[in-house]
Amino acid sequence: MNYSEDYVPDFSILTPTGKHTGMGGDQVQEFSKGGLSKQECCAPIPGPGQTLLVEWRVGRHHEPEANWKTFRKAIVVRGEALSGPNAWNLLIVRFFPEQQVEAEFVWEAPGPHGEPSPRLDQLFYGRRVMRQMGD
């Protein structure tokens, strides 16, 4: 999710020691263009209350890659995750202005009677509702 007007060509989720987890994303659109990226699945990553590193690049769509800037920030993962065979957990990485970033685990109840989590960003539903860090 992108709540800034920076285009994020790609980002990676790393362990606190800098090891790649295999998770990340690309083409995170600016907030004014929907603020979404493609979804990735699945990898073991640090859970709620644990620290991870987010590394991301910021650039313009048709700007040379050499002009893109790279940022890396250690953050503590918020939220909660379920365990068990039917657990479905989402890690949402949110980008904010001034190179601020956060990550939150959100669980969903699977199946026909499952309720969407109230913690899911409205951008998932095509509604441009701005969030702030920590919301």
Rank of each mutant, 00 (worst) to 15 (best):
K33C: 10
K33L: 14
G34K: 01
G34H: 05
G34I: 05
G34R: 02
G34V: 04
G34S: 06
G34F: 05
G34D: 04
G34Q: 03
G35A: 02
G35Y: 01
G35T: 04
L36T: 05
L36F: 02
L36P: 00
L36K: 04
L36C: 02
S37T: 01
S37P: 00
S37G: 05
S37Q: 00
K38P: 01
K38T: 07
Q39N: 07
Q39H: 05
Q39K: 02
Q39L: 06
Q39E: 08
Q39Y: 05
E40F: 09
E40N: 05
E40L: 02
E40I: 03
C41V: 08
C41Y: 08
C41Q: 03
C41A: 04
C42Q: 05
C42W: 12
C42K: 04
A43Y: 06
A43F: 08
A43C: 07
P44G: 14
P44A: 14
P44S: 14
P44N: 15
I45T: 10
I45L: 09
I45M: 09
I45K: 05
I45W: 03
P46S: 15
P46V: 14
P46K: 09
P46Y: 10
P46G: 15
P46F: 12
G47E: 07
G47F: 06
G47K: 04
G47D: 07
P48N: 12
P48I: 11
P48D: 10
G49S: 11
G49I: 09
G49R: 11
Q50A: 09
Q50E: 13
Q50I: 03
Q50W: 08
Q50F: 06
Q50G: 05
Q50L: 06
Q50N: 11
T51A: 09
T51D: 13
T51G: 04
T51Q: 13
T51S: 10
T51H: 11
L52A: 10
L52V: 12
L52D: 04
L53S: 10
L53A: 10
L53D: 08
L53W: 11
V54K: 00
V54R: 00
V54S: 01
E55Y: 03
E55P: 01
E55W: 03
E55Q: 14
E55G: 01
E55F: 02
W56H: 08
W56L: 08
W56T: 08
W56K: 02
W56I: 09
W56G: 04
W56Q: 05
W56P: 02
R57F: 00
R57I: 00
R57V: 01
V58I: 15
V58W: 01
V58S: 13
V58P: 04
G59I: 02
R60A: 06
R60K: 12
R60D: 09
H61V: 08
H61E: 14
H61I: 07
H61W: 11
H61Q: 13
H61N: 04
H61M: 12
H62Y: 15
H62W: 15
H62A: 12
H62R: 13
H62S: 13
E63Q: 14
E63W: 08
E63Y: 04
P64F: 01
P64T: 00
P64Q: 03
P64V: 00
P64G: 03
P64Y: 01
E65P: 05
E65F: 13
E65T: 14
E65D: 14
E65A: 13
A66N: 09
A66H: 08
A66V: 14
N67Q: 12
N67H: 09
N67E: 14
N67Y: 04
W68Q: 06
W68H: 11
W68E: 08
W68M: 02
K69W: 01
K69L: 11
K69H: 10
K69S: 12
